[in-house]
Design a protein around this nucleic acid. Sequence first.
DNA 1: AAGGCTATTGAAAATCATTTTCGCTATTGA
DNA 2: TCAATAGCGAAAATGATTTTCAATAGCCTT
Lengths: 157, 157
Amino acid sequence: MQPDPALPNLNQEPELLKTVLNKEGFRFTSQRQKILDLFQSAALGHHLNAEEIHQQLLDQGEKISFSTIYRALHVMVRLGLLQELELAEGRKYYELNTPFMEQHHHLVCVHCGNVEEFEDATMSQVGSSESTSRGFSLLNCQFTVYGICPSCQSLLG
Amino acid sequence: MQPDPALPNLNQEPELLKTVLNKEGFRFTSQRQKILDLFQSAALGHHLNAEEIHQQLLDQGEKISFSTIYRALHVMVRLGLLQELELAEGRKYYELNTPFMEQHHHLVCVHCGNVEEFEDATMSQVGSSESTSRGFSLLNCQFTVYGICPSCQSLLG
DNA sequence: AAGGCTATTGAAAATCATTTTCGCTATTGA
DNA sequence: TCAATAGCGAAAATGATTTTCAATAGCCTT
């Protein structure tokens, strides 16, 4: 799922979640706040999947259902608060959305699954020029590089 | 699934499939040939998912099971004949693998799902320099741009 | 502050793509 | 030619995500 193009992507301010939700007819709930908190307390650019969110909330004593997690993630993607990533292997990851020109990209080890982030302004430029030249309105772009990380290379001989 | 980095990606020659398969201990079967034929008869860079492969083979009077399709796709990805794409929406697409420096990338309309391809050598350069600077051995990279296509923009007003 | 409308929740069932199991068949290499 | 076993199809299993539904809670109006 991709964000609604008409909506701004504001976050970082405390207690803004309610405002952003209500502006679009969604309701503020403690579950949505707790999920967003997880992303905001993690390192910027750290990505989580539904399973990890569920586990982290359990660890801090919060009980929440998977349906609620998935619904909250979809809403926050639509509001531009989160970005959905297709890293690999059949599940979706989410991370805090960042302003377009600061988007980072991913280097995935296909052996151990480890993911490193990197930034490169070229991506946004190419994505932007490519989409405007074809009349697309740009939402976001993902550059994912697949390879084998140094430690897996030595393991594999 | 990503290709085995040690293996070359040869295709286009007729009857090469058997050779490539046997070289790695896999067996040549008519089902695998038919699947590869679909990709080779389609426009270069055209991507297909398992469902579409199954349907196209049914349309031409061939009966094949989904398990066989999935197994064949995995084998051909491992052999470097096909490349697996994570375009969007929970299913995997496959296309003929191309030499690394000629890889193309995708512009996806998140509204109608239409996908356009484009080439840009910058991607491969960035992917390559990024992975070598971190000691990764590079397999491939995917640049996916999400937006809304012109016709959907007018539909949405 | 109270009340109604309805979005949201949790639990369980349902989906959907993909993977695995298993008995049978077909390909490869000797 | 023939045995060993990779691959096949059908059906069951899996795993992530989505939907259903009755109960609850947030938001708006009064």
